[in-house]
Amino acid sequence: MGDNNGLKQTMGNVVGSQKFIAVLALVAIYIFFAISSESFRSTDTLVSIFDASYYIGFLAIGVTFVIITGGIDLSIGTVMMCSAIIGGVLFQMGMPMWLTLIMIIAIGGTFGLLNGLLVARFKLPPFIATLGTMMIARGLGSIISNVQSVTFPLRGAEEGFYKSIFRLDNNFPIGIFVLILFAVLAAIVLNKTKVGRYIFSIGSNREATRLSGVDVNKWETIAYVISGLFAGIAGIAYAATYTTILPGEGAGFELDAIAGVVIGGTSLSGGIGSIFGTVIGVFIMSVLKVGLPYIDLQPHYQLFITGIVLIIAVYLDVRRRNKL
């Protein structure tokens, strides 16, 4: 018993230290850019960083749940765009905006449910199942939009209120509080409820969880549904930030989100992870993305450097597990 406690404590410390390192890295990167470029220090730049973080942030928070179960959700990027584009089509057909926003989240949730059933009920490997739904979502968006882009109403236009969820008319980036609110909610679900407890438990030891009488299929499905719902919310964030949704897009965003999750210290083998780390991981990527052009580096350098950061993060993850 004493040993067990000691183990738990060590585990807590290591997870804590990874979070700590991630925060330090975020601050260090920010200060580096702030020193290198005067114009980076403006509030407008900070708003740009927030803007670039919203949709990836929601995707990453959602997929954290799936990754903690030991699974993966590759469909979130295209599900996000598919939900947004179908929402846009519905809106153009006359659906009121508030209902459109609910529909966007519902479409995301439906894809999540599909993923959950395929993985938990039909025992498809998560990688393959979500690869399939990734393609389905991409195709469905193109089919429903007739391969045309969909433009949401502009700020100030009729029904343009949804834009103020993420940025007020006076440019105040209220979206950061929305993101934090959802992050806190997700963290409560993950750490303080039965849902979270079982999700961690499935990720640590699936068989033991099943044998202790937990309906593993159900809770695993719920993890995918949460991921899908967050992909829907990300779709709203994307529409509010970028207004125009192109058909057939979204592939690749899931990898950005998963990279953010991993940089934030969630283990791809399941059982370990935190929402806080995920949010920090996403911001590390956004600061790199927005900051590098200020030191006159083209976007491909961002990929290069994010790759290095990712590898360092995974290296730490591997070391941590070997130590345990």
Binding site: I21, D296, F304, I305, V309, R319
Partner: peptide, 27 residues
């Protein structure tokens, strides 16, 4: 153990920073 990881990370971070600077110079 915590310290060890920290140290390694700082070295790696410094390396990454160096690469970034090199890239900037090359550019």
């Amino acid at each position: 153990m915590k310290k060890g990881i920290m140290k390694k990370f700082l070295i790696l971070a410094a390396l990454a920073g160096l690469i970034g600077l090199l890239a900037a110079c090359g550019d």
